[in-house]
Computed example of a mutant assay.
Amino acid sequence: MSHRGKFSVLVAVVLVLAVVATVSVLRASARADRRDQARPDGPRVTTGEVGLGPGARRMVFRNMAWGPHRDELASTAASAPAGTRTATAGGLTCLRFHAASGTGVCLQAVHGALTDTYRATVVDARLHEGAHYPVPGIPSRARVSPSGRYAAWTAFVGGDSYAGTDFSTRTAILDTRTGKLTPSLEVYGIVKDGRRYRSADVNFWGVTFERDDRHFYATLATGRKTYLVRGDMPTRTVTVLHQNVECPSLSPDGTRIVYKKRVAGLPADAPWRLYALDLRTMRETALAESRSVDDQAVWSDDRHVTYALPGDFGADLYTVPADGRGTPHELVKAAVSPVYL
Rank of each mutant, 00 (worst) to 15 (best):
R119E: 14
K261P: 00
D302Q: 10
S251A: 07
V14G: 14
L309V: 09
E246Y: 04
L174P: 07
L228H: 01
H329L: 10
Y150W: 15
V144F: 08
R141M: 11
R224H: 13
T84R: 10
A152K: 05
P271Y: 11
T86L: 00
G137F: 13
D278N: 13
K6Q: 03
V135M: 15
R195A: 15
E49H: 14
S337R: 00
A28H: 10
G164I: 09
V263A: 10
V238F: 00
L309R: 07
T117Q: 12
D212S: 04
A80N: 06
E284N: 02
V16T: 14
R262W: 08
E49W: 02
T327F: 13
W299K: 01
R224Y: 13
A125R: 15
A18D: 05
R96V: 06
F97T: 04
T93A: 04
N244S: 00
A151L: 09
T226R: 02
D175K: 09
Y217D: 01
A100Q: 12
V20H: 00
G189Q: 12
V135L: 15
V50E: 09
R195T: 14
P310N: 07
A74G: 13
G112T: 06
V258F: 00
V258H: 03
G223R: 10
D316I: 08
C94Y: 01
A38K: 05
T281W: 09
P338H: 08
G137Q: 13
V25A: 04
T22D: 01
G83P: 00
D201I: 12
R177W: 13
R177S: 13
